[in-house]
Computed example of a mutant assay.
Amino acid sequence: MSKSNTLFIGLDVHKETTDVAYVSDKLDDRVQYHGTINTNLRAFNKLLRYFKAKANKLCVTYQAGPCGYWLYRHLNSHGIECWVVAPSLTPKAPGDRVKTDKRDAMTLARLARTGDINSIYIPDSCDEAIRDLIRCREDAMLDYRQAKMRLKSFLLRHGHPCTGRQNWTEAYRRHLGAIHFLEPAQKIAYQHYINIVTEQFERLQHLNIELETLAQSWRWYPLVQRLCVLRGIRFLSAVTLVAELGDLRRFNHPRSLMNFVGLTPSEYSSGTRQRLGAITKTGNTHARRILVEAAWSYRFSPKVSEEMQKRLQGHSAKLQNLSWEIQQRLCKRDAKLRARGKEKNKIVVAIARELVGYIWTLHCRLTHKVRQ
């Protein structure tokens, strides 16, 4: 029996099991269901040996999910083409109301043969490692905030409300140390809350130091430094944006990047009627949050503060001038939208959307590495 030229394999990957379906590149062949295997390297290696005997080339497709990209890297190490597709971008018939693992695997194999699905961007292992550390820091920040809220709630219940902004400084620690409780149980509970906040704060500071150290040897560190010339974007914001967005050269136009972070308005138009809705909020939520937070800083008049001057040091005069032009442009646009009576949240989104275009420019135009 002759081998097929190309065999398209669809995988529905789960934590413990994976359903497998395949189809050849011949249009008259039907999709075949292979069965269910265990989700481990031994089972996948056995599966690959079986399919290599049936075709000259293998093309494996599976949907992105909580299992990560280890399977993609394992297949690439064996020289096998692999596509990782987004579940939200997988075509589905409106009347299809039946969903099973078997049908999902067969659908992926069929769509791969017809070319109706595209693979998402896969970061390399180093980029993913930096991104994991950044998200670990974000989790530590949330744990730190929750610990402080529990402490403040405890103090509020017992007549010691916290007013204003409290930073975890030595002066504030002395203030907490001056608060006493008569009941032994309350003393224990109070000290427990303080210890948790202290521990979370030290853990957060440790992660900040580790991130700054590891980022200096990262291949995208020059881009991180370049983004720090923008108003509202410091080191943590810049490294988060670069880690979450990945290689920006894969976007041929800044509007493609705007669509990726979900800052473009949705649209439902028909005939002569045009209707624009809220932003799509698709793509990377971490990057969109950082961009919106940075956009709030353009509410104020253009200014090169002392902290901004330190960030501009070491950069070329061309980049410093571009930073000032961007700041003037966005601050002027913010003022113009406020004068027109626009809602402040819509203004911030508009500024964040335009800021995305300048980020694309800083990466692609100044480095002269735009993908042709």
Rank of each mutant, 00 (worst) to 15 (best):
V197M: 07
G271R: 04
C364Y: 01
A294E: 12
E343G: 03
A189M: 03
A64N: 00
T36M: 12
R273Q: 03
T367H: 14
S256A: 11
T264S: 11
Y121A: 08
Y33V: 15
K344R: 14
R30L: 14
Y121P: 06
S297L: 07
Y144H: 10
F44M: 12
L111I: 04
L7D: 04
F201E: 02
G164C: 03
K332E: 08
I37Q: 11
I80V: 13
H368Y: 08
T240D: 13
V370M: 12
T198P: 06
N167K: 15
G262T: 08
K310L: 09
K99G: 04
S297C: 09
I117Q: 02
S266D: 10
N5R: 14
K336Y: 12
L257V: 07
A109Y: 09
N208I: 02
A215C: 13
H175R: 07
L182H: 01
F260C: 06
D139Y: 10
S301R: 14
Q205W: 01
Q274N: 03
D132I: 02
V60N: 02
K148Q: 13
S217P: 03
D127I: 02
Y69C: 07
T61N: 04
V98E: 14
R203G: 07
T36L: 08
K369D: 15
D127A: 04
N5H: 11
W220Y: 15
F201N: 08
F44H: 07
Q186K: 10
M141E: 07
Y22F: 12
N38R: 02
N38F: 09
V20L: 12
K26C: 14
R299V: 05
E128R: 00
T114D: 00
V229I: 12
M149D: 15
I130G: 01
K152C: 13
